[in-house]
Design a protein around this nucleic acid. Structure first.
Lengths: 234, 234
DNA sequence: GACTGATGTCTACACCGTAGGTCTACGCAT
DNA sequence: ATGCGTAGACCTACGGTGTAGACATCAGTC
């Protein structure tokens, strides 16, 4: 039956995994591929190949490639859970921040999606899972006595910082990990000494970057500031 | 002569603007297109069409599409100037921050490039124009008496905040600007009331977002913190 | 059985990035 | 003048891409 047409062989990993193709399964596979090879290596055809399906079947579960990417971002962000009943809002925000960092480090290739996708879509049209953390944090903070405006403010401050931090941390790419000398390891020797004297001088400092510590320091400052400036009515 | 082949007509805006095609001219045109239609509408072929050249000529001035995108990001970032001789480092950092915001708002479609491109490239391989602000700020701060490590720290804090802020501010997309009611203007009525009660309640606050003020407030806090925590030896 | 809707498949189209080759024009040593 | 090297522009062609549109299959309901 079904002699394969002129296209490539349709079965790679598995012909038809077991049952139907669901959006969740599709997104999981897409996420896996993105984690492995980066965003722009993800194509509808490639994804279909990995799923053992026809490329066009994907369009039953995502209207678009854009929609698929939204789905991937949403999937990742669902790993972020906020306990909006926690009475210690500071501790809870700290926990959220750590979770977010962990997620970003686990899926570095998805981070561009996370920070970039919302720029194209009005808030209300964004995937619901993407808005969940916002709503939950608003709940947490109003529960703690903040006004809606202040709660929104705090959310923005936290995620602004978080996004900034993650973008900083993910830039730490080592060019030749096997090299022992910091200057060579980071490839800084390429930079002309006359043009970038300070930067070249910082090889050892750059090499010693500690993202986790950095996050904690930033959180200390930020949360202390938030607590002192706008203390909720108890 | 030269009856056009099966491809499209090669002359659109101008056949051969005036002289040779330079990298600068190419990048300027690319930036213009990105500003107008967004990043993923930019194609080598489209760019060539806009320049009135053959698509392949572009490869004389950019090895890659990736290289071209790097060039666009670099072009934009060159608008950012740091006066590293300024003795008032706080005022200078503030000025840099304001410039950066202005640039980001002028070229919103380039922001994804700005924040996303460095994630893929080791620091030393990034376009030089991209590293200029970093080097200059390091110069500014060491001039002011900071150690290299502290200077780097301050740079990171500033740009972390800046990136976070811009990503926040650019998310403020109004769905239907002509609508007067905030809830409808932002499209928030789509969100199910039971799932997003807090978010829906914040329509007026969301609508009143003021990016410039927000930036200043953040800068006040950040710069005050930096000044008090790590004051340079005078 | 007939109908309906969801799901999968096939074909086809317009477009993409770019490897490889060729044609032309110019600067420069001979 | 001659020849040569080189830089710029162009053409063709290949293998990919996202997805519209038509058709096929099947589950469940009347």
């Amino acid at each position: 039956m079904n002699a394969s047409s002129a296209d490539s062989a349709p079965q790679d990993s598995e012909p038809h995994p077991d049952g139907k193709l669901t959006r969740a399964r599709m997104l999981a596979c897409a996420l896996e591929m993105v984690d492995r090879e980066g965003i722009d290596k993800l194509s509808m055809r490639g994804l279909a190949r990995a799923l053992g399906r026809d490329p066009m079947s994907l369009y039953r579960h995502a209207t678009n490639k854009a929609d698929l990417l939204d789905g991937v971002a949403e999937t990742v962000l669902t790993e972020l859970t906020v306990d909006s009943t926690d009475t210690d809002w500071i501790a809870q925000l700290r926990a959220v921040a750590r979770q977010f960092r962990r997620i970003a480090l686990t899926h570095p290739h998805v981070v561009p999606l996370l920070v970039t996708r919302p720029l194209a879509t009005p808030l209300a049209l964004r995937p619901r899972g993407t808005l969940r953390p916002l709503e939950d944090i608003l709940a947490l903070l109003t529960q703690a006595g903040f006004s809606g405006a202040d709660a929104l403010h705090i959310y923005r401050a936290l995620f602004g910082f978080l996004h900034g931090h993650i973008l900083n941390e993910l830039q730490e790419i080592v060019e030749k990990p096997e090299e022992t000398d910091d200057l060579l390891r980071l490839g800084l020797h390429r930079l002309p000494i006359h043009e970038f004297p300070h930067l070249r001088g910082l090889a050892s400092v750059l090499a010693a970057y500690d993202g986790a510590a950095e996050l904690e320091r930033g959180l200390d400052i930020l949360l202390a500031g938030l607590q002192s400036v706008t203390t909720p009515a108890i």
